[in-house]
């Protein structure tokens, strides 16, 4: 789920950047530092949408760096248990498949794939129904439900299921082509 929230961060800036463009430098450094990071509390920071305020800079002893407290608005993405997501399949193996929804990696175990879908090994490993009408392979898009999340310092890993109503393949570029 996406949220638009305000976060705060202390930015350290080298004196080199002091000058007319200080603020621009600060913002671009903030973007570089923050966007794409992940925290267990807020999830992934997707994009900074605005700066609320930049506090007074404090010169740090010994290093000449200056610390600015910056409040910024950002869009964060955090998956929740029970959430329905659309994701792109990135890897299929005999244990199930991995899919990605933006920065989040989701694993769908073969136990959580409908029983009528069988694993087909080969050049393009995939899960196919017995009649061959539905095929899950790399690059195809699936709708899945998250049943569990694990939050590390640097990533969020989810386990999902497609064994439920209205879940499964929603678009298969390979088949369409």
């Amino acid at each position: 789920m996406f949220f638009h929230i305000v976060l705060e961060r202390n930015m350290q800036l080298h004196p080199r950047f002091f000058g007319r463009n200080l603020r621009e430098n600060l913002v671009s450094k903030l973007m570089k530092d923050v966007e794409g990071t992940c925290s267990g509390r807020h999830g992934f920071v997707v994009a900074i949408t605005g700066i609320e305020s930049v506090g007074k800079g404090l010169i740090r002893d010994g290093t000449a760096f200056v610390t600015f407290p910056v409040k910024y608005q950002c869009v964060v993405f955090r998956p929740f248990k029970g959430e329905i997501l659309e994701a792109v399949v990135t890897l299929v193996n005999k244990m199930g498949f991995f899919a990605e929804a933006g920065p989040v990696q989701i694993f769908v175990s073969k136990h959580l794939i409908p029983d009528d879908m069988e694993f087909q090994a080969g050049d393009m490993p995939n899960y196919t129904t017995s009649d061959g009408s539905v095929k899950i392979q790399k690059e195809c898009e699936v709708r899945l439900k998250i049943i569990g999340t694990r939050v590390d310092a640097t990533e969020i890993f989810c386990v999902g299921t497609i064994k439920d109503d209205f879940l499964g393949v929603i678009n298969d570029p390979a088949a369409a082509a």
Partner: peptide, 24 residues
């Protein structure tokens, strides 16, 4: 310091336009 901030694995994911190649 900067590096540390950047050391998130996602920092160079394609979806993030601002990763290390940023102009500054």
């Amino acid at each position: 310091p900067i590096h540390n901030g950047m050391r998130t694995p996602m920092r160079d994911r394609a979806w993030n336009p601002y990763t290390p190649m940023s102009p500054p």
